[in-house]
Amino acid sequence: MGSSRFSDPKVVVAVALLCCLLWGSSYPAIKSGYAWFGIAADDVPTKLVFAGWRFLWAGLVLLVLALATRKSIWGLGKSTARELVVLGLAQTTLQYVFFYIGLAYTTGVKGSIMNATGTFFSVLLAHWIYHNDRLSHAKLWGCLVGFAGVMVVNLGQGSFDLDFTLLGEGCVVIAAFVLAAASIYGKQVSQRMDSVVMTGWQLAIGGAALLAIGWASGGALTGFTVASTLLLVYLALLSSAAFSLWSLLLKHNRVSQITVFNFTVPIFGAVLSAIFLGEVLLEWKNLLALVLVCCGIWLVTRDTPAATPASLDK
């Protein structure tokens, strides 16, 4: 599939949903990984080590793939190297540090809902950064309807109250903002280099930093078996595929057109958790959430024509 195809509306929808399906599959995979590796719910350092291995391997897979397809991964220049370090430390390391700290001090339900604010941040930041990606009534309503779907899918899964703490919900919101800002920064970087090489380096750098922070904080990943190792390999491969494809979508399309698909991640997560973890799926809230998310995506994308690379300037 050529790079130009990533601006075709049908390809955009198919690839974006594939990425979100892969990320949704990480929900049951990570839950299983914590159990198989014996990671306690409040053991944030070991969770960072777990994530570090996942993203380091994911980055290395993409860099090896780049080399195999005769793409240059070395000699990119000091300026580009600095950009890759900033991107890796922000999009992978900083975002996950804030995310895991936040989840340690809030419920999974509230964390999932707060994390969905990243889509709003992406649309708002794009409004101020790109002249051709302004916030419209359709986009605003699309985000609100999609966010409502995320809230609906979490109804009944745990407690939800109006308490807000900086270490809990605050850190999750900060993580969502960091990811949104880093994704837009990555879009800028991808205009000047190959998206696969960029994604490979940012994942590898970010994963290595997560490993260092986790080890320095006393984390240690044990319990390696054939099953647990294969699960970690799967998580690395899905990250390689999803992040590289997502970077290509952002490179060739408007930010708001792509990020709204993030609302489908909790839906895919709920479906796959029901399949692999035996959680309840056929409930009214899941069907209503799916309808709301689809309506939100339609509202954002209905009047957003596919953008060519030449039209993506500031």
Rank of each mutant, 00 (worst) to 15 (best):
M1K: 08
S4F: 02
S4A: 12
R5N: 09
R5M: 07
D8L: 00
P9K: 03
V11N: 04
V12R: 09
L22E: 06
G24Y: 08
S26E: 13
A29T: 14
I30H: 13
K31D: 10
A35K: 15
A35H: 13
W36K: 15
W36P: 01
G38N: 07
G38V: 01
I39P: 03
I39W: 07
A41F: 05
V44R: 14
P45H: 04
P45A: 05
A51L: 14
L56E: 04
G59F: 02
G59H: 03
G59L: 02
V61R: 04
A66V: 00
K78F: 06
A81V: 01
V85K: 04
A90D: 01
Q95P: 01
Y96H: 11
V97P: 03
F99K: 04
A104G: 07
A104T: 07
Y105V: 00
Y105S: 08
G108V: 10
K110Y: 06
G111Y: 10
T117D: 00
G118P: 02
I129G: 06
I129Q: 08
N132T: 14
L135K: 02
L140Y: 04
G142S: 05
C143Y: 03
L144R: 12
G146P: 13
A148Q: 06
V153S: 12
L155Y: 07
D161T: 12
T165A: 09
C171P: 01
V173A: 07
V173L: 13
V173D: 02
I174Y: 04
V178D: 06
S183L: 13
K187I: 03
V189P: 06
S195I: 04
M198P: 06
T199Q: 09
G207N: 10
A208T: 15
L210P: 10
L210D: 11
A216P: 02
A220R: 15
A220M: 12
L221Q: 10
G223F: 06
G223C: 08
G223N: 07
T225E: 11
A227K: 15
A227N: 14
S228C: 12
L231E: 09
L232I: 15
V233P: 08
V233S: 09
A236W: 08
L238F: 13
S240G: 15
S240D: 05
A241T: 15
A242Q: 14
K251S: 08
K251L: 11
F261L: 07
F261V: 09
F261Q: 06
I267R: 03
G269I: 01
G269A: 02
I275W: 15
V280H: 12
V280M: 11
V280D: 12
L281F: 15
L281K: 04
N286Q: 13
N286A: 10
L287R: 01
I297C: 11
L299Y: 08
R302F: 08
A307S: 14
A307D: 05
P309M: 11
A310G: 13
A310I: 05
